[in-house]
Each structure stands twice: as C-alpha cells, then as structure tokens.
C-alpha cells in the first residue's frame, strides 16, 4: 500500500460553529491533489487542524500520516513527522531572521546535541533562494516582517524546500503572486514533486493548476468534499462556477 495522508470522517468546529462535516480525503505520496472551494467553506480550517492548531475542537474523525494517527499531537511533533503547511496568511515574527528561523527548524530535526553544519546550511539556503529568485539579503530580514504578499509566499516555499516534508499542504500559495512569481513558485513546488512527497494544493484559480498539474481535483463545499475528478474538473469548475456544484448537490 502506498503511504498516504489519510483524513477520515473529520468533524470539527470553532466555538459553537461546525466547520468540517464528515470530511474525508486521502493523498497518497507521489501525488498532487488540488482542493478548490468557495470562500469560507473550511479549507484553511482543514489545513490548520492537520497542522495541530489548538483553536479548533475535533469532535470525531482520524488523520493518519503514513499510517500513524497525528490528530491531537503537538504542532511541532506533527511537523517533524513530515507534514508541512504553507500558510494562507504567514505570521510576521519580529526580531527573528529567516536564517535563524529555518536553522532552528532544521536543528529541531537533528538528534539532540548533534553538531549543526552551518556552512552546508548556508550553501543550501542560498541555492534554494537563488532558485526562487529571492535576494540573499532576505536571510537577515525578520521573518515576513514588511514582506509584500508575494514575498511571504515565496518565503513559505523556501521553507518547504529546506524542510523537505513527506506531505505539504499549500494554502492559497498562489494568491498575491504576480505572473512571474507564480511561475517561479510553481517551479519550486514541481522540483519537490516525486514519489516521496504528497501535496494538497488549496487554490481558487485554475491558472495555478496549469503550472502545478494535479493528479486529482476535489471540490469542497460546506465542510466536505462533494466532487472529485481529474485535472479537467478544475476547468469545468472554472467554466461553470460554484452554482453548478450547488445545483448538482440539490439534485443528488
């Protein structure tokens, strides 16, 4: 059986409000799954629950990462087990440089007390930044502070490239990117594609999926997946809009 990120019958709420309603989805390693859905349907909520955000209450359901239940684990433990979330709205961390931040994330993955190879680290960091066309000066800038929307998204992909997770959930990484940046970021993701990595790509736009061609496309509606198909589903959705999904739901 291919290892996978498996979400089973997840029900979750914030406060009194139910957001995920019997949500199920399986992303096998080596595949890219796109998740599309109208504003407020719960895509970011899903992403944050997977990453272990403490604000949500999970009523029922399970999440398995390569067969191991991760629901309820601390966010840092989940991350070290191999799940990466590229945030829709990355936090600004005043006073902490990107170099120190990524370094701390890598050190956390080493055996306790193991020496850190700073030279190799910077070589790799600079190489990835060059690939993403990020100015090397960014290493000494504070994480996301004063970054433009597009710069923040690039910085998320830089972290993704440095941390090499087993699964990555990208939450609207394309929003706020200009056309060139969209291409650069997509290429960054495509370089990481391979049999060992699974992707969940949350997006509103078909255009991203021309660059990052998905294996599967899922449509999310009111807290669950209501429609799944191949990459052509995104085109169909683009052409028909969400009313079409709504009508389909009503007739079924």
């Amino acid at each position: 059986m291919t290892p996978s990120l498996e979400i089973k019958n997840l029900n979750a709420s914030i406060g009194e409000r139910a957001i995920l309603k019997n949500f199920s989805l399986t992303i096998p390693r080596g595949e890219v799954h796109a998740i599309m859905g109208p504003n407020g349907t719960g895509k970011s909520t899903l992403a944050k629950i997977l990453a272990g955000h403490p604000d949500y209450t999970v009523q029922s359901g399970e999440v398995f990462l390569d067969g191991e239940q991760i629901l309820g684990l601390e966010p840092d433990v989940i991350a070290r087990q191999g799940l990466f979330l590229a945030f829709q709205y990355p936090s600004e961390i005043p006073g902490v440089t990107i170099a120190n931040f990524i370094r701390a994330a890598l050190v956390a993955r080493q055996a306790k007390g193991a020496p850190f190879d700073a030279k190799a680290y910077y070589a790799q960091l600079y190489a990835k930044m060059d690939e993403l066309k990020m100015d090397r000066k960014f290493t000494s800038r504070f994480v996301n502070e004063g970054f433009s929307g597009g710069e923040k998204k690039r910085c998320e992909i830089l972290q993704l490239a440095m941390l090499k997770p087993k699964y990555a959930v990208l939450d609207e990484t394309d929003s706020g990117l200009d056309i060139d940046a969209l291409r650069i970021v997509s290429e960054g993701v495509n370089r990481l594609r391979g049999p060992d990595t699974g992707f969940g790509v949350i997006t509103h736009y078909q255009r991203l999926l021309e660059y990052i061609v998905p294996d599967r496309v899922h449509i999310m509606w009111d807290g669950r997946i209501v429609h799944s198909g191949g990459k052509e589903l995104a085109l169909e959705l683009e052409a028909k809009g969400y009313d079409w999904v709504k009508q389909e739901l009503a007739t079924h």
Binding site: G52, E74, A79, R80, G95, V96, A104, A108
Partner: peptide
C-alpha cells in the same frame, strides 16, 4: 503556532520569540 508548525518545540519557539522581542 507558526514556529511550532515548522517543527520547532514550544520552549525553543518561546525563546526565539523572546530573542526576537
């Protein structure tokens, strides 16, 4: 949460944020 979501343990994350402060 942002720091922890990158695999950084709570205590280290708090220290980083304090240094940042």
């Amino acid at each position: 949460f942002y720091l922890q979501a990158r695999g950084i343990p709570l205590k280290v994350a708090q220290e980083l944020l304090t240094q940042g402060f």
